[in-house]
């Protein structure tokens, strides 16, 4: 770490930007920047929606309520389209995922040097401001979703039903070991693909912003402006994909064969 921090030139710059503010050693260490920014953004999300929910009226809605309702209707529509059971959890879960991931990704649109610069003035050596460029953040979310998938599979189908599904599908009881292997891979692939897709997109996006920032100043706007505009699409799309896949996976968990 220490050597990386003092590496000179372009590589040093890139590594510096993509290194988390870390305390502790080994597994029991924490990325303070990821924790801080994701909690802060979660706070923004909660604050905005709580504000809208407290003033919620069935009459003429205010600006905040209008926006919150727009998102809620959008999420509710997605849930209704793919999920046919009854669940109090799934729609709020989808809303939280969409908004939170969107806000994480949105941090990507801040100029790459501003927040680390402020941090360095305050004496913080490393600052990686986009939580979705941290595998811990994306995996935390996808593993939570994975647990929910397992939980609902067992709850809806029963332990025996779920075990049967793992063993006897899709090729019938004669190929049980093969079925089991296939199903396990399928289930485990879900959280991994969820987390890596989001991480990969945002990490690459941030990397390109950093690379653009290395270019001479008169070239930068030409590249970073279109990339930022393109990124508006990407960050929304990634949040949307994460949400929709979560809904789809959970509806699959709810379906009893």
């Amino acid at each position: 770490m220490a050597t990386e921090a003092h590496a000179e030139g372009a590589t040093g710059y890139i590594i510096h930007h993509l290194t988390a503010l870390r305390v502790g050693e080994g597994f029991w260490s924490l990325h303070l920047d990821t924790l801080f920014f994701s909690a802060l953004l979660g706070g923004v999300f909660i604050w905005f929606f709580k504000n809208a929910a407290e003033k919620a009226t069935s009459g003429v809605p205010g600006l905040a309520q209008n926006f919150a309702e727009m998102l809620i209707e959008f999420v509710d529509q997605q849930v209704k389209d793919s999920f046919h059971g009854h669940s109090k959890l799934i729609a709020p879960l989808a809303l939280t995922i969409f908004c939170w991931v969107f806000l994480w990704n949105f941090m990507d649109l801040f100029p790459v040097d501003i927040l680390p610069l402020i941090g360095s003035i305050m004496g913080i050596e490393y600052l990686r401001v986009v939580p979705s460029t941290d595998l811990n953040a994306t995996f935390a979310m996808s593993i939570s979703v994975f647990f929910l998938i397992i939980f609902y599979s067992i709850k809806i189908k029963g332990p025996i039903g779920f075990a049967k599904e793992l063993m006897f599908q899709p090729f019938g009881p004669w190929l049980t070991p093969f079925n089991l292997l296939l199903k396990l891979v399928e289930e485990i692939a879900k959280p991994i693909s969820l987390a890596l897709r989001l991480f990969g997109n945002l990490y690459a996006g941030e990397l390109i912003f950093i690379l653009i920032a290395l270019l001479p100043w008169y070239v930068q706007p030409l590249l970073s402006f279109p990339w930022a505009i393109f990124h508006i699409l990407i960050i929304t799309l990634q949040a949307f994909i994460f949400m929709v896949l979560t809904i789809v996976y959970l509806s699959m968990a709810h379906e009893d064969h």
């Binding site: 502790g24 924490l30 990821t34 939580p131 811990n136 995996f139 935390a140 593993i143």
Partner: peptide, 9 residues
């Protein structure tokens, strides 16, 4: 991957 994962969860 480290304990941040747990904090995030």
């Amino acid at each position: 991957i480290n304990a941040t994962l747990i904090g995030q969860m």
